[in-house]
């Protein structure tokens, strides 16, 4: 064996298996790897419970959320009414799950609208000649600097009639500017990238580039913002409803449930304020955590300082 060790074997030598096994033992464990790959499992589970619970609320709701039990209005939480009742005698626990549907629906609808608008607007601006691009971007900048809620209030005033669709539309149509800006920057960047130039040199048409190169790249860039948009849409809906310019009382959502908060304050009925709010905040925190996990880190590099 000892003599063979010093034989000239060259690059393509397969060492005996026993050697390889020894080296495997010597290799360190991947303890650190775990710390980095932390995923928001808790947020995901909690969000899943909330969403599934809202979707299938008929299966376990103890009361009819719409039924006004006038005998038991502003009832404290107890065994019968787990989270108490509101000033109109509706069971809060049932309302929470039932109303969650509407809140989530509005969140997704509004996001869908704003994402679509943003992609179209951003892509057009990114592909447009300089002057048009500048014009469009000035427009988004101004839109961005106007407080979102004021715009929504204004639009809501114009539309008048409030229902789930109109409120989703209003929230969606006012919340696309920041996504559009990112889409536009990405499109500009990708458009000037070498792989698109290469593709064009090979004779690729506009749609080929759009489908194969632009879309996959900018979609990953805006994922975080889209998720955050769901969050702010739900937030806007609740704020609007609370202020009385959103959904009316008889359409139950987390926001409209809080409309009665004024009366609750007077009577000290804390449960009417706390429970819907906790649900709302829990959902939003979960969505934020999931969104942050999607976000591309700061280049993944380490600080130099």
């Amino acid at each position: 064996m000892e003599d063979k060790l010093f034989e000239l074997v060259g690059a393509a030598y397969a060492p005996p298996l026993s050697w390889a096994e020894e080296s495997r033992k010597a290799a360190g464990s991947g303890k650190l790897a775990k710390r980095y790959s932390k995923k928001p499992a808790l947020s995901f589970c909690l969000l899943a419970v909330i969403v599934l619970g809202c979707l299938g609320c008929e299966l376990f709701m103890p009361k009819d959320p719409l039924y006004m039990d006038l005998a038991n209005y502003s009832h404290r939480p107890d065994k019968e009414f787990w989270f108490g009742t509101d000033t109109m005698g509706r069971d809060l626990f049932s309302m929470l799950w039932y109303g969650g549907r509407i809140s989530l629906l509005i969140g997704f609808l509004a996001t869908a609208i704003s994402t679509l608008t943003a992609i179209i607007f951003g892509a057009v601006s990114g592909l447009a000649p300089g002057w048009l691009d500048m014009l469009l971007m000035r427009f988004t900048e101004i839109l961005l600097s106007v407080p979102n809620l004021l715009l929504v209030v204004l639009l809501q005033a114009v539309l008048g009639q409030v229902n789930v669709w109109s409120i989703s539309f209003v929230i969606g149509i006012t919340g696309w500017a920041s996504i559009a800006k990112v889409v536009r920057t990405e499109v500009r960047q990708i458009r000037g990238s070498e792989y698109v130039i290469a593709s064009k040199c090979m004779g690729a048409g506009f749609f080929h580039v759009l489908w194969n190169h632009l879309a996959p790249n900018f979609i990953s860039a805006i994922m975080f913002m889209v998720v955050m948009n769901v969050r702010s849409a739900i937030l806007s809906e609740s704020t609007l409803s609370f202020m009385g310019i959103g959904l009316p009382l008889d359409i139950i959502s987390w926001g409209s449930m809080l409309t009665l908060a004024d009366q609750a304050l007077l009577s000290g009925a804390w449960w009417m304020i706390v429970f819907p709010g906790v649900f709302l905040v829990a959902t939003l925190v979960c969505i934020t955590n999931l969104g942050s996990a999607l976000k591309r880190g700061v280049g993944g590099s380490e600080s130099n300082l």
Binding site: L235, S238, T239, F242, M243, L258, L265, G277, L280, V281
Partner: peptide, 10 residues
């Protein structure tokens, strides 16, 4: 994540 109005109420 906390809506302003709700925080005010609390």
């Amino acid at each position: 994540c906390i809506p302003e109005f709700w925080l005010s109420l609390v």
